[in-house]
Design a protein around this nucleic acid. Structure first.
Lengths: 206, 206
DNA sequence: GCTTTGATAGTACACTCGTACTACCAAAGA
DNA sequence: TCTTTGGTAGTACGAGTGTACTATCAAAGC
């Protein structure tokens, strides 16, 4: 057997190249040739590790979702499980905003994929529901804990609050992407609404 | 001079065909050929009224924005200018949700255009900021009036509330598009948050 | 040392795209 | 009536696409 190549790593390399192109030139600029060139391989190599473009696109989406999940978790984890549920909620929602370039690319490509999935049956819409659903369940749980701990008012509905905040965060993220407002302005709006839920309890962060 | 054709109407016809395709098959399925076929014309006719695909796409976006504006206004107008500002706010935000097929197509195509505009300089991002900015200013104004009229608490910030509600509405709309929740569920979340702003004042509508 | 085989490279083919070009048709003005 | 001209149709071309195909290379096993 010749020089064994780590298939997983190769596929990851190619997926990264795909995301770089999709993030800079748009998802429509993702072609076998452009991805191969960006990754520094020949077209046939991309074909070798992904038998078709459809498979490549699908893997690219999975790769993106995985990286987004890791990133959010990396920011939430350190906050600690034992920490105040409100801090966790704040960390998650803040991280959901496109504040740096990497996050901006995530948002853009993810949205592009989402739009594509509506009309292209090849890209199952399942990944676009699992992630958000999981996230909403997580936030709902945190808000339940916050309510039980008396951090937020008892009249608040954790489920509806979580769903609303998540949707707001997504909407704000899109507006940042389109240049309607800056990330800081979006953060300000988000913080205002968090403050409305738990007055005086969101002033630890700068 | 031969059989005069109303250029405005022809362009509108073609734009409608474009939107039908973009709404059903996706914006990437919009080609000179597909649009011409959908409109029942030859390709050269589309070329005749739009000198290039770029111009066609741009006009399609303008046409969409115009129709969306008309639709929202048609629902807000009857509510009356003299009516309660909260009713106007409710009407606008409700209408911003994709509840019927036409609205669903609006959301989808608009989002597709928005995503495209981020990476394609040909599609100016201006239209995606003017509309939302105008809408936010309008809602902010209504909330100011509501606050002055004592319909909402004085501690609320009209600007931040308007921005948040609009972002939430957009985010909820996207989630409906992706099938994460139904339009009714999204409406429920939205109504919950309106109710939070002005308790007991959003129970007129079914 | 030779063969096998996983990995990479180059190329060709069928297809679709946007666009340019020419031809045709029919109504209005001379 | 004949010519001009706005509108419509058909077609051809170059560029770019996904994919199949073959060739080449290099390391592992005999």
């Amino acid at each position: 057997m010749p020089k064994l190549a780590d298939h997983g790593e190769r596929r990851a390399q190619i997926a990264e190249a795909l995301l770089r192109i999709a993030g800079s030139k748009g998802l429509h600029a993702v072609t076998m040739r452009s991805v191969a060139a960006e990754a520094g391989f020949a077209v046939a190599v991309v074909q070798y590790y992904f038998e078709s473009k459809e498979k490549l696109l699908f893997f690219g989406l999975q790769h993106l979702a995985r990286r987004m999940g890791e990133r959010v978790w990396a920011h939430v984890g350190p906050t600690g499980q034992a920490a105040s549920p409100l801090r966790v909620v704040d960390a998650v929602l803040t991280q959901a905003l496109p504040q740096d370039e990497e996050s901006r690319v995530f948002h853009l490509v993810y949205t592009a994929y989402a739009v594509l999935s509506v009309t292209d049956s090849a890209l199952a819409t399942q990944p676009f529901m699992d992630g958000p659903n999981e996230m909403q369940a997580f936030l709902t749980d945190q808000l339940h804990k916050a309510r039980d701990g008396g951090e937020i008012a008892a009249r608040l509905d954790p489920e509806a609050e979580a769903a609303g905040l998540l949707a707001m965060s997504a909407g704000l993220g899109t507006s940042v992407l389109l240049g309607q407002r800056t990330a800081d302005e979006a953060l300000g709006v988000l913080r205002y609404h968090l403050e409305r839920i738990a007055p005086g309890r969101f002033q630890w962060s700068p």
